[in-house]
């Protein structure tokens, strides 16, 4: 039986903490072939670009946001769309937190809208986003 009937507006999605280190940031940018110096060249990032540290890649935050939705969805449906924006930078050494909540449920077509976030240690939403998932209605 579909999980859909038990899902309600404002249900919370499980939170997850991320404390990315240099190795994880290196792996991510290597797998993309992304050589932007702000992600691995500390003197460049701080002295030339003026950042306080090495910058977490924007789409890496987007991926973590997406994982919030698909881990909650599990094998009970499909991801239809995801959207996010990188509003504030984050840096190696910070602990970030992903999470979200159900913003609407459509029992007719099985679609559930999710509001998602990545927050920093100051509880600022640095990457807000949203996703639509579709549950099986049968």
């Amino acid at each position: 039986m579909s999980r859909l009937k038990n899902i309600k507006e404002n249900d919370l999605l499980p939170e997850r903490e991320f404390t990315p280190d240099n190795v994880e940031l290196f792996f991510y940018n290597a797998v993309l072939w992304n050589a932007h110096r702000i992600h691995y060249d500390f003197p460049y990032a701080t002295e030339v670009e003026g950042y306080p540290g090495l910058v977490i890649a924007g789409p890496q935050l987007g991926d973590w946001l997406t994982q919030t939705a698909i881990e909650w969805l599990a094998d009970d449906g499909k991801l239809v769309s995801v959207e996010y924006s990188n509003r504030k930078a984050s840096y190696i050494g910070e602990t970030l937190r992903s999470g979200g909540k159900v913003s609407s449920v459509n029992v007719e077509n099985g679609e559930v809208e999710l509001e998602l976030y990545i927050m920093n240690e100051a509880d600022e939403v640095i990457t807000p986003g949203s996703a639509t998932v579709r549950f099986a209605t049968a």
Partner: peptide, 12 residues
């Protein structure tokens, strides 16, 4: 020319 990350919208 200073590149900053923006955002994505993906339809699957």
């Amino acid at each position: 020319e200073k590149a900053m990350a923006g955002g994505l919208k993906i339809d699957y």
